[in-house]
Design a binder for these strands. Sequence first.
DNA 1: CTATTGAGTGTACGGGTGTGCACTGAATGG
DNA 2: CCATTCAGTGCACACCCGTACACTCAATAG
Lengths: 232, 232
Amino acid sequence: MAVGAPQCEVAYNVDVRTLNAVTAEPVSRHERKERTRRALLDAALRLFAERGFGGVSLREVAKQAGIVPTAFYRHFASMEDLGVALVEESMRTLRGMIRSARNDPRTSAGMIRASVRTLAEHVRANEAHYWFLIRERYGGTGAVRQAIGIELRLFSRELAVDLARFEYLREWSTEDLNMMADLIVTAMLGTVLDLLEARQGDTEADARIVRTAEKRLRLITLGVPGWRTGQA
Amino acid sequence: MAVGAPQCEVAYNVDVRTLNAVTAEPVSRHERKERTRRALLDAALRLFAERGFGGVSLREVAKQAGIVPTAFYRHFASMEDLGVALVEESMRTLRGMIRSARNDPRTSAGMIRASVRTLAEHVRANEAHYWFLIRERYGGTGAVRQAIGIELRLFSRELAVDLARFEYLREWSTEDLNMMADLIVTAMLGTVLDLLEARQGDTEADARIVRTAEKRLRLITLGVPGWRTGQA
DNA sequence: CTATTGAGTGTACGGGTGTGCACTGAATGG
DNA sequence: CCATTCAGTGCACACCCGTACACTCAATAG
């Protein structure tokens, strides 16, 4: 993490075998296992970005990670298990994003700009994680979709707490704050998808998407002063 | 189809063979083929609702429809081809929904209520279609996700045209209208997912979801009078 | 130093996959 | 009435899937 480079998109064709062969000797068993685990997670994330969770087999993940299929079970009970682990990891990066946005000390319109920009940068730096979240949020079938749903709801609730600190929102009911937070999260996930679908490097498209995202947020916040909590 | 029953959820265990065997003779070749095609689409839609597009094999669809796997190719070149056909069909029911909502002649707050209610009823009456759209909108991998993306964008543009008729929105730029329409569509798709995930028959949950959806829309529309097109 | 542990290996299995091919037999058109 | 068309059949193939099982052999623990 000391380096500013993206952490998951690297090492495309390096599997554990070569990795462990290249490195110097002093590696404990724990460490070796942890490395393989990471290799599995990275391989899975990479493959999911191409074909989605459902389209990737245990064998493929194992092969990409540089181990034999049956060794997969030393780390995860099943692909679903691995999927859930990835959900937690991805949500961690999402929380990291909002923490960055939160710590940027600005207000009102300036804050919207800063937040959207932070989001966009974060998406570009962690494309695979965001692809995974977006895809499986709706497309998944089992435990993975469920896990994402739960985590995202939690995330939205945290955002509601943040919102409650703003002047106009201080007296809103919890229900209304949650509603607004959900709306914001949903809108921002839409923006994430737009960013992911625009091909990376197309700065013009990125700028347009960011501008639209800002407008969305501004429109939502414009409604706030006129809102009467508890109405209808 | 003369009966008023839902059209896709029925006939769970009836395949083409038995259907064609039961019915009286006067069936042309065209008609028989069309029936089998429908059986394939219905079977696919049914299976997709359970395991998603990616999780269903050509063989399964064929078996559920009552034909042998290789006969599938008499109707579709591939599963993707069938998927795209299903996208068009599902979008047709979505357009049907908005047409119903549009023809309900009310204004302002009353219109929001009516629209959301129409949406909820429509979702309940066509769960499989909506499951398919929502799932593959994000989760899909190939031509299907792309087709949904295109159709949904088109749909959103139509909504923008509708919006332009409203008093406060008459002077908005096209870009801003599209932005608002996208926001509304995204928010409503979120509502659709909420409805689909609430188990059918839970009228209390349905009511809560509908209320939240109305609030979302109301918050968005509240911002409209304060909006200055072309700003920032 | 010796015994144990456990990550990773290799083989083998039963089952599901898409699809090519030669076919049947009833509706169709001349 | 006969020839053609073509939706649907049945078999075969080569491939990928998850996973059970017995194994190796280096890092660890006593």
